[in-house]
Each structure stands twice: as C-alpha cells, then as structure tokens.
Design a protein around this nucleic acid. Structure first.
Length: 224
DNA sequence: CGTCTGATTGTCT
DNA sequence: GACAATCAGACGG
C-alpha cells in the first residue's frame, strides 16, 4: 500500500497545498464532490483521506479503502428504506456531504456521508492510517497493530474519535471533520462485493454488489 | 490463519 | 421488548 502523505510518489507536495486555509494535508472535498449518486460517490471516496480534529487540535488522517452504498428508497438494507425517517437517521436526508453518525449495538458508532438522492448515504468501513497513528493507538489500545486500528466501521470511529457529536456536520465547511481529495485510482484496483452484515434485508438486497474496496491488508474482511 | 459466540445499549415498535 | 450497517476474544487447524 502506498502512503501518500509522507514521501514521494513523484508528486510535489506544493501541488497538494492549496487554499485549504494553510493547514497541512490535501485539498478539501467540496460540495461538487459529494453531489452525485450514491454509488458514484462511494467509488469516488476510495483513495480519499478522512480527517478528524479533536478538542486538542490533534488531527488524524486515514485513506478510505472500503465503503458501502446505501441507496434509500427501495433499498431494504438502508435505515432510510421506504422513506422511513426518524430523529436518528435524519442526516441521511440532508444535503450531500452531511455526516451521518449513528450508534449500533449500543457501544459502537458508524460513520456515513450523505450523497445525492433521498435518504442515500455511503458507509465508510475501513481506513489505512496515515497520520496521528500513535493517537489512534492510544484510543484503540497500545498493543494494536496498524492494520487493526481502522479495519471496521466501529473501529475507525473509535480510532479517529468520530462520534455522534459529528452527526449532521457539514463536511464541506466543518473544522472538525472533513475529507481531502485522493489521486484518481485505476479502475482495476476497485473491487466489489455484497455488503456486510445486512442478512435480514432479503436476498435481493443482501446480494447486491454495493460494497467497494481496495484490496489491501486494511479492509475489514476479505472478498467474499 | 479462520470460524464462532457472548456482550451490550441506543433506538424504534 | 426486540433488534441491530459490530467487536473482541476464544477456540481449533
């Protein structure tokens, strides 16, 4: 796996540092990035970098290597199935680029980004840790290996300190949670599979190829 | 390495 | 009161 931030893959650092208010890191994804269909956004997010800044101003970064599309409407696996709205899933209906963070099994959080489309959102399932790795290890457990820090939707929220406080945050303008552009990936590195953990959604939607990932050691599960 | 199971609680019915 | 877009640890090969 190539680390993009440290050392060279041939790309001059200066080209990545643009108007992004003088911070380190890459170019922030804007509204035009998020404003597209759920599946398109899901694929586009692969290779991008998720950034979360905590109360102490510490920033953690991880490259997105695994996502799932939840289409809303007809998609029985989506929380927003059939227009179902509630206090908890409201963010899925908000403008593209809105963070949707919900809690699952009581203790864990999962992080999504809303896309174009009613109730559509992209779940982020795994990251390759890039910056702030030591901070992540502090949150996840000192003994964890790098590839066990962010290889699951609940794990990456814990490592990056993404919480329900970030629910409904606008990632285009937020100072605590946002995404940065990645270099465009060759089509052949993007793999597909059925989504994980949605077995009660009925066979059609359970089989739909709506999980997209880059086959690295950092994904949550191997291809099925 | 892989598969299996118990834990645990926010959220909706 | 039941369920859930999960996790860690145990156990077997």
């Amino acid at each position: 796996m190539k680390r993009r931030s440290e050392s060279s893959n041939g790309e001059p650092e200066a080209t990545k540092r643009k108007k992004d208010e003088g911070k380190e890191g890459g170019v922030r994804c804007g509204m035009e990035f998020y404003d597209r269909s759920c599946e398109e956004l899901a694929v586009a997010m692969l290779g991008c970098v998720l950034v979360c800044r905590d109360e102490d101003g510490e920033e953690c970064r991880g490259e997105i290597v695994e996502v799932e599309a939840y289409l809303g409407g007809e998609d029985r696996a989506a929380h927003s199935f059939n227009g179902r709205r509630s206090a908890a899933n409201e963010a899925m209906f908000m403008p593209p680029g809105t963070a949707y963070v919900y809690s699952i099994y009581g203790v864990h959080s999962c992080f999504n980004v809303s896309s174009r489309g009613e109730g559509a959102a992209v779940l982020v399932r795994a990251l390759c840790p890039l910056e702030g790795v030591d901070i992540m290890r502090g949150r996840r457990g000192r003994r964890r290996r790098d590839k066990e820090l962010c290889n699951g939707p609940g794990k990456l929220c814990q490592a990056m300190a993404v919480s329900k406080q970030h629910n409904k945050v606008d990632m285009v303008t937020s100072t605590t949670l946002w995404m940065e552009m990645g270099s465009s990936l060759p089509n052949e590195v993007i793999k597909k599979s059925p989504r994980i953990g949605i077995n009660s959604a009925g066979p059609e939607w359970a089989a739909a190829q709506l999980r997209f990932f880059i086959d690295t050691p950092f994904i949550s599960k191997k291809s099925s």
